[in-house]
């Protein structure tokens, strides 16, 4: 555990975290210390608590036990350093706002009460839209976008937050191959800038090539480390064990994994 006076506290530190839904534990005794400047994949079977971990880390859900520190402080004190990309289905895409409005929301945390986004905020938003190649769509109503475009709007909004630690909940869900490639390129770019990214990911074969580190989750932390070290037959079995629906997918992934 790091000392509170540590000049470079880790982006995310979680100790003995337990979270439950309707009295059923979803996360149990999670301990985690995430190093800075890494692209980290969170993998695990359905119901393993991947999204819950993100929400709990951001203080979006009540904790049964344990604590979360973001850059050495309780998350509430450091919210501005945290960026969030929720699952695409979590919002109503018929909402009467334009692409630009949504990206500008990423700047709201920096604006005080009664403050309207300034010219700089708008420039920043345009720059972020350009990065995800959506600038020509800035004035579109958000319902007139494809799934991949919607996902990129969320990414642009997260970029506009200019955070140091990002939580992304399945940013690759339902996007086509070209979009997936452009998103992963963007994530690498962010990493090069020293940002820490924690990304919930469903697809094991790509997880191996996309991420520097993997967090294997199944209610507890099964493994957390360099992808090359933890992507092993034994740990994958341990993470996904007994889950019939994805066994074939795991088997494929395991076949490619070095055996121990």
């Amino acid at each position: 555990m790091s000392d509170t006076s540590d000049p470079n506290p880790p982006p995310l530190e979680i100790h003995d975290l337990t979270v439950s839904y309707h009295k059923k534990p979803v996360l149990w005794g999670v301990d985690l210390e995430v190093p800075a400047g890494k692209l980290i994949g969170i993998v695990g079977p359905n119901g393993a608590g991947k999204s819950t971990l993100i929400k709990a880390a951001m203080g979006l859900m009540p904790l049964n036990s344990g604590w979360v520190k973001v850059f050495g402080e309780p998350v509430k004190k450091n919210l501005r350093r945290v960026g969030y990309v929720p699952q695409r289905e979590s919002v109503d895409w018929d909402f009467p706002v334009s692409v630009m409005d949504v990206v500008l929301m990423g700047r709201y945390g920096r604006l005080g009460l009664m403050r309207r986004p300034t010219r700089e905020d708008k420039d920043k938003a345009r720059e972020c839209l350009e990065k995800v190649k959506l600038l020509p769509y800035a004035n579109r109503q958000i319902s007139n976008l494809s799934g991949g475009q919607q996902q990129r709007v969320f990414l642009a909004r997260a970029l506009a937050q200019e955070s140091d630690l990002y939580f992304m909940d399945e940013p690759f869900a339902g996007v086509d191959a070209a979009t997936e490639a452009s998103i992963i390129e963007l994530l690498h770019e962010l990493k090069e800038m020293g940002k820490t990214l924690m990304v919930v990911h469903h697809d094991l074969p790509t997880a191996r090539s996309y991420f520097d580190m993997l967090l294997m989750l199944n209610m507890r932390v099964v493994a957390f480390g360099e992808t090359s070290k933890v992507f092993t037959n034994e740990l994958l079995q341990k993470t996904y064990g007994g889950r019939l629906t994805i066994l074939s997918e795991v088997a494929d992934a395991v076949r490619q994994a070095p055996s121990v």
């Binding site: 951001m58 203080g59 979006l60 919210l79 960026g83 979590s90 409005d101 929301m105 309207r116």
Partner: peptide, 22 residues
Amino acid sequence: IVFYKELLVTSFDAGLAFSLGI
């Protein structure tokens, strides 16, 4: 008018609102 931003973002995406400290 005063709470336009806050009403907009909490109505659209409560999770994001929280992460922005609203």
